[in-house]
Amino acid sequence: MTGFPRLVLFDLDGTLLDSAPDMLAAINVLRAARGETPAALAELRPHVSRGARAMLAASFPLLDDAAREALVQPFLDAYEREIGLHGRPFDGIEAMLAAIEADGARWGIVTNKPEYLARQVLPAFDWDARSAILVGGDTLAERKPHPLPLQHSARVLGIEPARCVYVGDDERDIVAARAAGMPSVVALWGYRRGDDDPAAWQGDVMAETPHDLLNPAQWPR
């Protein structure tokens, strides 16, 4: 195979989209309501791929679990108002997606973000018309690191998992791909904490930037 994989599935936040600025705006709505000073982007960015609860834990470390849990829905509501206003695709993403499409291959999105929020992100970048499938964290009975969302996507689109590739910036992405029998790419340009060791995740390919994936030869086979 000399072209791109026939189906490439992507994580959303931290892989396709630099959504940290939108998340920061939502966090700072909550902080302002509590009379706290704004958080800094650098403080929040490493936690974005781990979801709302991880971001709240990083942003409100003095609150107990129950108090932070009570902030989950207000955070999601605030984030919904900020979607697409601040975040942008990572540099090189649009060129990579265009190259995949030009090769006649398809791409889709499998994210742990609630589906209703993910669907609101896509129109800003015309991804709703281009993505072959969107599976959110609440679309199915399981979410990543469970393999079901990846297996479901491949099945719906009629491609064997071994002929697909999953691209993600979090260990859960790589664990899910391995369990689904799907080759994987570690997106090193995404969101990571300082104690993360992407090499230990055992992805098939590690890519420093989306530009590295413009060449089909760099993809796992």
Rank of each mutant, 00 (worst) to 15 (best):
68 R>T: 08
137 G>V: 10
193 R>M: 05
155 R>T: 14
54 A>G: 12
157 L>R: 08
178 R>D: 12
96 M>P: 01
14 G>C: 15
197 D>W: 08
15 T>Q: 12
70 A>L: 02
93 I>R: 05
168 G>D: 03
24 L>W: 15
26 A>P: 12
3 G>A: 02
74 P>L: 02
19 S>K: 09
37 T>C: 14
72 V>K: 03
36 E>F: 07
96 M>L: 13
145 P>E: 01
123 P>V: 06
62 L>V: 15
176 A>F: 11
2 T>P: 09
148 L>G: 00
205 V>W: 15
51 G>H: 05
123 P>H: 06
209 T>L: 11
164 C>H: 01
91 D>A: 13
149 P>H: 04
184 S>V: 07
11 D>Q: 04
131 S>K: 05
27 I>N: 04
177 A>N: 06
114 P>M: 00
108 G>I: 07
3 G>Y: 00
93 I>L: 01
101 E>R: 08
31 R>N: 03
37 T>Y: 15
111 T>V: 03
86 H>F: 14
199 A>D: 14
136 G>M: 10
1 M>Q: 09
102 A>Q: 10
1 M>V: 04
198 P>D: 14
5 P>G: 02
149 P>T: 00
139 T>S: 11
117 L>K: 07
160 E>M: 12
18 D>N: 14
169 D>Y: 13
197 D>R: 15
55 M>A: 11
89 P>V: 02
59 S>T: 00
61 P>Y: 05
141 A>M: 09
159 I>F: 15
50 R>G: 08
176 A>V: 10
15 T>N: 12
195 D>P: 00
168 G>W: 06
94 E>Y: 09
35 G>M: 07
216 P>N: 00
140 L>F: 07
114 P>T: 02
132 A>Y: 02
52 A>Q: 07
189 W>A: 07
64 D>C: 13
208 E>V: 15
195 D>S: 01
101 E>M: 07
145 P>Q: 00
124 A>C: 03
39 A>C: 11
103 D>N: 11
128 D>W: 11
178 R>E: 15
96 M>V: 05
160 E>A: 14
161 P>E: 12
67 A>S: 12
